[in-house]
C-alpha cells in the first residue's frame, strides 16, 4: 500500500472571506504505518482526514492510493469518528457486519465461502476487543468505550487499506481512553493496517504511532515529520521512559511556544503574589 498526497490544499470561501483550512501539503505513507496527525484544535487536521476519506473535495492537489486517484468515499478507506456513529437500530453484531451485508447485496456473484470467512473474521474481532458477550446488545446498552470498539471493528470488517480515525477517544474518560489506546496499539500490531489518527494529545500520538505529523495552528500545514523510535510491542511503562519524555517535551515546545500564552500570565501572577502576601 502506498499513499501519495501531493500539494493538497483546502480553502473555504464564505461571505466574510477566504479561510485556508489546509495549506498545500505533501507527504507519503506506506504499509503498516501508524501515523498521528497532531496539532492544536482547529488546525485543519480533521479536514485533511476528511479529504483522505474522500468525504470532502480538495481545492487543489491530489491524493493517490496505490496509484488510483481518490475522488470519493470508498470501503478501501474506513473511518472512525469522535461522535458515536453506531446505527442504534442494529445490534452490535449487525453493526459490525453492516459493511459485509452491504457487499452481499451489491455483489451476488461472490462465493458464499468467502463471505462466511469474512463474517467469521468479524466475530473473532468482536471477541478480541472483548465484546463477545454483547453481540446481541443494542448500542444504547453500551458504554462509550464499547461503542467505539464496535465502530473500530465495523471499520475493519471491510479490511480497508487505510483506517482513518478522527479523535476517536476524544469523548471518553481518561481511564477508558488509556484502555482504548492499549487496544489500538495491539490491534495495529495484530492487523498491520495503515492508520491515520487525528489527535491533539501528544502522549497519545507518541504512544500509538510509528510516525507523527505535527501541524501548525490554522492555516494548517505540516511543520514536522517525526519517526517514533519505539518498537511494535509497547508497554504502558513506556510513557515514563526518559526517551519518551524527551520526545514529549520536544513536541510540547513545538505545539505550545512559551511566548504564545493568549492571556496576561505575568499580570495575573503579579496579582496573585500581591494578594497572598
Amino acid at each position: 500500500m502506498t499513499l501519495k498526497v501531493q500539494q493538497l490544499a483546502k480553502t473555504y470561501h464564505s461571505r466574510t472571506g477566504v479561510t485556508h483550512a489546509v495549506l498545500p501539503t505533501t507527504f507519503e505513507a506506506g504499509s503498516g504505518e501508524f501515523i498521528s496527525l497532531l496539532g492544536p484544535s482547529g488546525c485543519g487536521k480533521s479536514t485533511l482526514l476528511q479529504l483522505l476519506a474522500g468525504l470532502d473535495t480538495p481545492t487543489a492537489g491530489s491524493i493517490h492510493l496505490d496509484g488510483a486517484w481518490v475522488n470519493g468515499p470508498s470501503r478501501e478507506r474506513g473511518m472512525v469518528f469522535q461522535s458515536y456513529t453506531l446505527f442504534p437500530w442494529l445490534t452490535v453484531l449487525e453493526n459490525a457486519r453492516f459493511p459485509l451485508d452491504l457487499e452481499i447485496h451489491q455483489d451476488y456473484s461472490r462465493p458464499s465461502s468467502e463471505i462466511l470467512t469474512e463474517i467469521g473474521r468479524v466475530h473473532s474481532l468482536l471477541d478480541l476487543v472483548g465484546l463477545d458477550a454483547f453481540k446481541n446488545s443494542y448500542p444504547r446498552e453500551l458504554s462509550g468505550g464499547m461503542k467505539q470498539r464496535v465502530a473500530i471493528v465495523r471499520a475493519l470488517a471491510n479490511q480497508p487499506k487505510l483506517l482513518l480515525m478522527d479523535e476517536p477517544f476524544g469523548a471518553l474518560d481518561a481511564q477508558t481512553r488509556e484502555e482504548m489506546q492499549e487496544l489500538m496499539r495491539l490491534l495495529h500490531a495484530h492487523q498491520k493496517m495503515t492508520v491515520f489518527f487525528v489527535t491533539h494529545d501528544i502522549e497519545e500520538a507518541l504512544y500509538l504511532s510509528t510516525r507523527v505529523l505535527v501541524f501548525s495552528a490554522r492555516p494548517g500545514t505540516i511543520i514536522e515529520d517525526i519517526a517514533v523510535p519505539f518498537g511494535a510491542i509497547r508497554d504502558p511503562e513506556l510513557k515514563f521512559k526518559p526517551e519518551f519524555i524527551r520526545l514529549k517535551r520536544e513536541l510540547t515546545a513545538l505545539l505550545h511556544p512559551a511566548h504564545e500564552a493568549n492571556f496576561d500570565r505575568t499580570g495575573l501572577l503579579r496579582r496573585i503574589i500581591s494578594t497572598s502576601s
Binding site: 474522500g54 468525504l55 468515499p73 473511518m79 469518528f81 456513529t85 446505527f87 452491504l102 465495523r154
Partner: peptide, 12 residues
Amino acid sequence: PQDLLQVSYTLG
C-alpha cells in the same frame, strides 16, 4: 446526524 451518513459512505 451527518456523521451517520458519512460513516455509511466510508463503509461502502
